[in-house]
Nucleic acid binder design. Structure first.
Lengths: 268, 268
DNA sequence: GAGTGGTCTAGACCACGTA
DNA sequence: ACGTGGTCTAGACCACTCA
């Protein structure tokens, strides 16, 4: 038990006082990149998540247990976990414990699909994969994925329909190294959220994304696939998703039909 | 000094134990709407904000002072303030104190204007008010503002240009009762963010908003005012803004030209 | 009843800003 | 030097879950 953290403070048997920095004694140089203890704990927990030691959906050790392992008080672990829960990396459940967040939940869907029906009420989602192939990354995609132009990527094109009405046409680019094994069959037959598949089968969990939204006109291809008039206005959403360590692992370009749906955003 | 909170626990001179609920002794009925102490403190602080006792930009009492007033420990006040800071109602500044948030800051702008230039770098913003008038609220606006159809509202129509290029055409509806004194001159001459004006001159601070985004085609009016071709694709952004108590106080409909700009969103 | 997260307290020291 | 928020600790009890 008790893999002592890489935290340099090796002998904190008598935690009489604060001394938050790395080394208990010397404050060292004037500004030696200095972080609170709970931030260090947070980083250590994040390491466990990134390395896959604690997998999505799993229960992690209790606060007191982590406090013992890391030689800090429960309160300090608590503050670290609080922040990770606020960032949706962990989920706390009173009486049960703290779990690694997962995309296999209704709750997670809303975070990454912001297109909502104008009139509420659930709707049947139908997913159709049009194309899946390997190709060499174009310059712009490579740049966004932090790869070199020409590196292998997996390309996906698909259409989502709600209640039978085609509404989203999207293209995805994924790093070839990570998603080598992704096939059209696997993707087409998979029930549930795509990010759930990525997380479970490819060990890649999306934790954050940025989106840039523009207005566009339907070209011939989009018009046909979305069953709208050519030149109809469409919402153009370009997303870059990141996994642990802020590493970009997906570029997604979607065209949304917004006649009966809208992109919902909360400013707070 | 020391206006004791409306908190029923009137005599907590000996705070030996927890006893968080409303009444120290009786847990009373089975589920008598029960909230943690720090939530009650949060509500009390929010009252002071809503009533205008602590105004935007002002320094509020220190954590220890509030702890004394409310007869709770500093840690409990701290947790209440933490949440209010997370909601952007308060701003903490180490060494100085805690302040009521204000829209008179660069930081606040980004929260409510999500349209960004494709290529970074600052740009000169030019605001032109086209029209300002009182009118009777149409049914849909009234509904969104929680008013009765036909109630008085202030209507504003304006164009924003960046580096001389007209980019945003927007219409606003504001409750007449609150914004009776708003004139075209006052709005046109005002330097700085509109929400800053509303906060300072009209005692109405926007703390939250929801936006619904769709794609649209420029009609004749929009095409002329934005200097684009008729039927050009535009981003259509409908916002409802809320003040304290989740009271809606603004409806805003914007048409954005997204040739050199994009709506930026973070999914996290 | 045992274990977990959730709340609350009291006191200590640190880092920052100002005088 | 002083007051503020920021961090850390230790210990208490509460609320929830499950065996």
């Amino acid at each position: 038990m008790s893999s002592i953290p890489s935290n340099p403070s090796s002998d904190p048997a008598s935690p009489s006082a604060a001394a938050p920095g790395a080394s208990p004694t010397a404050p060292a140089a004037s500004s030696p990149t200095f972080s609170p203890l709970y931030q260090q704990i947070k980083a250590l927990i994040m390491q466990r998540l990134q390395s896959g030691e604690w997998k999505s959906g799993e229960l992690i050790p209790s606060e007191v247990e982590l406090g013992n392992r890391f030689k800090v008080s429960q309160g300090t672990v608590r503050k670290a976990i609080d922040e990770l829960a606020a960032e949706n990396l962990l989920v706390r459940r009173q009486g049960k414990g703290t779990f690694v967040a997962t995309h296999h939940e209704a709750r997670s869907q809303f975070r990454f699909l912001r297109l909502m029906p104008d009139s509420d009420e659930p709707q049947v989602t139908d997913k159709r994969v049009i194309e899946l192939k390997r190709l060499r990354a174009p310059a712009d995609i490579a740049r966004q994925l932090g790869m070199k132009s020409g590196d292998s990527v997996v390309y996906v094109k698909r259409v989502l329909a709600f209640d039978g009405v085609p509404t989203i046409l999207e293209e995805l680019w994924l790093p070839g190294a990570l998603f080598k094994a992704l096939t059209l069959e696997r993707l087409a037959e998979y029930k549930g959220p795509m990010y759930g598949l990525f997380e479970t089968e490819f060990g890649t969990r999306m934790i954050r994304a940025t989106e840039q939204i523009r207005a566009a006109s339907a070209d011939a291809d989009a018009a046909e696939l979305l069953a709208v008039e050519k030149s109809s206005p469409l919402l153009c959403v370009e997303r870059v998703s990141f996994t642990y360590g802020d590493k970009p692992v997906e570029v997604r370009r979607g065209l949304y039909v917004t006649n009966r749906h809208h992109y919902q955003n909360e400013l707070s």
